[in-house]
Amino acid sequence: MASTQQRFMRRGITRIFFLKTIAAATNIPTRVELTGTGGTDLSRQVSEVEGWSLENSPIETPDLGSKFATSIPGEDKAANSSLTFYEDLAAETVETLLSKDVTGYVVILRKGDIPASKSMDVFPVRVGSRAPSYSTGTEPAKFKVSFAITDVPTLDAPVPAAATS
């Protein structure tokens, strides 16, 4: 019997956080690190998301016995990754948090903040650049932050349990 797939739109569901540190060697944050004093929820300021995935560069392995060129998996690397934010006329909170050369972690909860869901991706990052997007059109002011992914990301990690009162 086939189960019904529950499809969804990322906007309004997916959450993006920036954490300055994560204590665990696994790079899996605790609830306090994620939503307490350690993390900043950027979701409401993000207008565009690019990258945040791993890519593999296959290695060709042709042989004399076949005209077909086979391949094997090669090195993994992170796609060029960036977040575009809406500018705030009254404050520079995000600009200060994500200034050039700042290191930390971009944490993406793909299916939202659902404790125990194995849908959390954690990317160790360093801010490479932050640049305003200039336009004369009728659109909101934005700026783009480009990130270098500095270590192997932790993918499909469980979202930490909700805080208990």
Rank of each mutant, 00 (worst) to 15 (best):
A78M: 07
S117M: 05
S82G: 12
P153L: 10
V107G: 00
V106T: 10
N27E: 05
P58I: 00
I108P: 03
T21A: 13
E75C: 01
R10T: 09
F18G: 01
G38D: 08
T93K: 11
P115W: 05
K100C: 00
A24C: 02
S146H: 06
D63W: 04
F8G: 07
S66Q: 09
G39Y: 05
M120A: 06
V152F: 08
K118G: 08
A90R: 08
P115H: 10
F123I: 02
V102T: 15
E33D: 04
T61L: 06
A2P: 15
T136G: 14
V94H: 07
F123V: 05
Q5R: 12
A162D: 12
G65E: 13
M120I: 04
E48Y: 05
A163N: 03
T103C: 06
G137T: 12
T164P: 00
R7H: 12
A157E: 04
D88N: 14
R31A: 12
T136F: 11
T40K: 11
Y105G: 03
K77L: 01
L54M: 14
L64W: 07
F17E: 04
P153N: 07
I108G: 04
I114F: 08
K142P: 00
M1F: 03
N80M: 06
G39P: 02
S43C: 09
F18Y: 14
T14Q: 15
G137E: 13
D63A: 02
S146T: 14
R31K: 06
T61I: 07
T70S: 15
A157N: 09
F147S: 09
A131N: 13
F68C: 00
P160S: 06
D41W: 05
S57G: 02
S53N: 10
D76S: 06
I114W: 04
R7N: 09
K111M: 12
K118Y: 10
A25M: 03
N56H: 03
L98I: 08
P124L: 05
R10A: 12
Y105W: 03
T154A: 15
A141S: 15
E48T: 10
A148M: 09
Q45H: 13
G65Q: 11
A24V: 04
V102I: 12
V125W: 01
T96I: 11
K67C: 02
R7Y: 12
A24K: 13
V152S: 08
I13A: 04
F8M: 09
E60C: 00
R110K: 14
D156F: 06
D41P: 05
L89N: 11
A90M: 08
E87R: 14
V159H: 08
S43G: 10
R15H: 11
A79M: 00
L42N: 04
I108L: 06
L34F: 02
A141L: 13
D76E: 14
V122E: 02
T150I: 14
T96R: 10
A25D: 12
G39R: 03
T40P: 01
A148T: 15
S71I: 01
R110Q: 13
M120V: 02
I22A: 08
